[in-house]
Lab assay of single mutants.
Amino acid sequence: MSIQHFRVALIPFFAAFCLPVFAHPETLVKVKDAEDQLGARVGYIELDLNSGKILESFRPEERFPMMSTFKVLLCGAVLSRVDAGQEQLGRRIHYSQNDLVEYSPVTEKHLTDGMTVRELCSAAITMSDNTAANLLLTTIGGPKELTAFLHNMGDHVTRLDRWEPELNEAIPNDERDTTMPAAMATTLRKLLTGELLTLASRQQLIDWMEADKVAGPLLRSALPAGWFIADKSGAGERGSRGIIAALGPDGKPSRIVVIYTTGSQATMDERNRQIAEIGASLIKHW
């Protein structure tokens, strides 16, 4: 067993022997301040990774656009098919120029040779490549099948209805392509620590998230040296922004954090800054 596999296998073990965790309302004060600064709703939840206990939450059962955070769930569904012998990570998928959609920095470079399922998941999570996500959605049967996968996990809230990039439209009061912070946090925890996926697939999923290259201005910008984070960000229309993450000190994750916002007129930089400040408060009061 590799060191990384050992780390993920012992996530519940280490967490069980940690000192009790206590909620700190100071972080919620910052979440509410972010709402004021952005002029928009902000949803927040913080779960203990081992027990699933909610440590703090704000608007945990209000719907927010998922945006690209759905790509972690998508690759979880792909990995479940791999575990069941219905898919192979090494299978190569070929596609054409007509398949390319807006923001496809990886797939646009491989029109000639195609990409493997493993490479597509890596591109979808680490670079948020939209064509990679659409190609992977095709392998599982489309958005409705991802929703069905989530329902089978016990998540009857999260739903995907459309493809990239239309799913980022974020129309107010439109339930399409949305989740709730509580539902997303619980589902992410199941994917990373539950028995739904094999140990190898859980490790692969967290490795992809740990290698995320496009979430630097968010929670990662607030992390002290030595902290662990595996995350996936999302951005959408109407001032929408979000991030889902597993993080913790001492090089291992111990909490799940989900943050979503929508309806702001603020710039992307300002949305990023507010999420980073929430992260800084979380870490300060850990």
Rank of each mutant, 00 (worst) to 15 (best):
A34M: 07
A170G: 05
P249L: 10
T69Q: 02
V257Y: 06
L120H: 02
V101D: 00
T69C: 03
A182Q: 10
T179H: 10
G142V: 12
A34V: 11
S221I: 00
C121G: 03
T139I: 00
I206V: 14
I256A: 15
I54N: 07
I93L: 14
Q265I: 15
L146G: 01
D177V: 09
L74D: 01
V72P: 09
V117R: 03
E237M: 07
E35C: 03
L218D: 12
R92F: 00
P172G: 10
T147E: 15
G216F: 15
L188Q: 09
G52K: 07
A225T: 03
G239S: 06
A84R: 14
Y260G: 00
E61V: 10
Y103H: 06
G90V: 04
V72T: 11
R41P: 08
R255P: 06
N173C: 08
V214D: 06
E102D: 13
E61P: 10
L160N: 04
A280G: 01
I171S: 06
E87H: 12
G114L: 07
L79M: 05
R63E: 06
G76V: 06
G39S: 13
K53A: 08
A185Y: 01
I256V: 15
P65V: 10
G194H: 08
S128G: 04
I229L: 02
K232L: 11
S80F: 04
S104V: 07
L38S: 06
S104M: 06
Y103S: 00
Q97Y: 06
N272F: 12
L136K: 15
E26N: 03
D161L: 00
E35L: 01
G43M: 13
L218W: 05
L218R: 04
L49S: 14
A124M: 03
D83Q: 02
D231L: 08
T126I: 04
L223M: 10
L111E: 00
E166W: 11
G90D: 06
G142W: 06
L111N: 00
A235I: 10
P60G: 11
G141R: 07
Q37G: 08
I259P: 07
D207G: 05
T131C: 08
A77C: 07
A245C: 12
S80E: 15
N50Q: 01
K190W: 15
P165S: 07
S264K: 04
K144D: 05
D250L: 05
M153D: 12
E175W: 01
Q265R: 13
S264H: 05
G242T: 05
A225S: 01
E175T: 00
L49V: 15
L135S: 13
Q88N: 11
V101K: 01
A185M: 06
D155L: 09
L79R: 07
L196C: 14
N272E: 03
A230G: 11
Q204V: 12
D155H: 14
E237A: 10
R41N: 13
T198Q: 03
T179S: 10
M268S: 13
Q274D: 06
R271S: 10
S122Y: 12
I125M: 10
G234C: 07
I243P: 12
L136S: 10
R238N: 02
A132F: 14
P165D: 03
P60S: 07
A132W: 13
E175S: 02
R162L: 09
I45D: 07
R176A: 01
L100T: 12
D231G: 06
G76W: 07
M115Y: 00
L223Y: 03
R273C: 02
I275W: 08
L111D: 01
M127R: 03
D174T: 07
L282P: 07
M127E: 01
T126F: 12
R176T: 05
M268Y: 05
I93A: 15
I125T: 15
S122N: 11
T262K: 09
I244F: 15
V82H: 07
E35A: 08
Q274W: 04
E166V: 02
S57R: 05
L167K: 07
S104P: 10
S51M: 05
R238C: 06
L218S: 03
N98H: 09
L28T: 07
W227E: 01
E46N: 10
R118H: 14
L89T: 03
S281Q: 14
D231H: 11
N134S: 06
A266M: 15
Y95L: 00
L199H: 01
G226M: 05
L136T: 05
D129V: 12
P165H: 05
S80C: 03
I125A: 14
T178A: 05
N130W: 02
A200K: 02
C121T: 08
F58N: 13
K284W: 02
D174V: 04
M127V: 04
V78A: 09
L111R: 01
I244K: 04
D99Q: 14
M66C: 02
D231I: 08
P249Y: 15
A211T: 02
Q265M: 11
P60R: 07
L192R: 04
G263I: 00
L111I: 05
A132H: 15
R81N: 03
R159D: 13
A183L: 13
E277S: 13
R162F: 14
Q203P: 12
Q86T: 09
L38R: 10
A230L: 10
L197C: 01
L38T: 09
G263Y: 01
D83S: 02
T126R: 03
R220F: 05
K71I: 12
R63D: 06
I256C: 15
L137Q: 04
L146W: 01
E195Q: 07
S104C: 12
G90I: 13
D212M: 15
L38P: 08
R118L: 14
I275K: 00
A183N: 13
E119D: 11
T198W: 07
L219A: 11
S240M: 02
D161P: 04
L74E: 10
L167E: 08
I275R: 11
A276M: 07
I140E: 15
A34L: 03
N152L: 11
T112H: 03
A123I: 00
E62T: 05
T198C: 10
G114A: 03
Q86H: 07
R176M: 01
S68V: 03
G52C: 02
Q86L: 08
R189G: 11
G248K: 08
I259G: 06
T138G: 06
T27N: 08
E277H: 14
K109Q: 12
P165A: 10
P249A: 10
L218P: 02
R241T: 11
R273P: 06
R118I: 13
A215K: 10
P217V: 12
Q86R: 10
T107L: 02
G216M: 00
K284N: 05
L196T: 09
L167V: 03
R238W: 06
R241L: 07
L74V: 10
T193W: 05
A148V: 13
I171L: 07
L79T: 11
A280S: 00
L282N: 08
D161A: 01
T126P: 04
E46F: 15
P172S: 04
W227H: 02
G39A: 07
L136E: 07
K232V: 14
M268P: 06
G141K: 02
I229M: 08
T139M: 07
A235L: 10
G90F: 14
G43V: 03
E102Y: 08
A133D: 03
V106E: 03
G52Q: 03
R41Y: 12
T267H: 11
P60Q: 02
A124R: 08
T27W: 01
S80M: 00
I171A: 02
P25F: 03
S281N: 14
Q265A: 11
T178C: 10
L247G: 01
N134R: 04
D231N: 04
I283S: 15
D99Y: 13
T112C: 00
M209D: 06
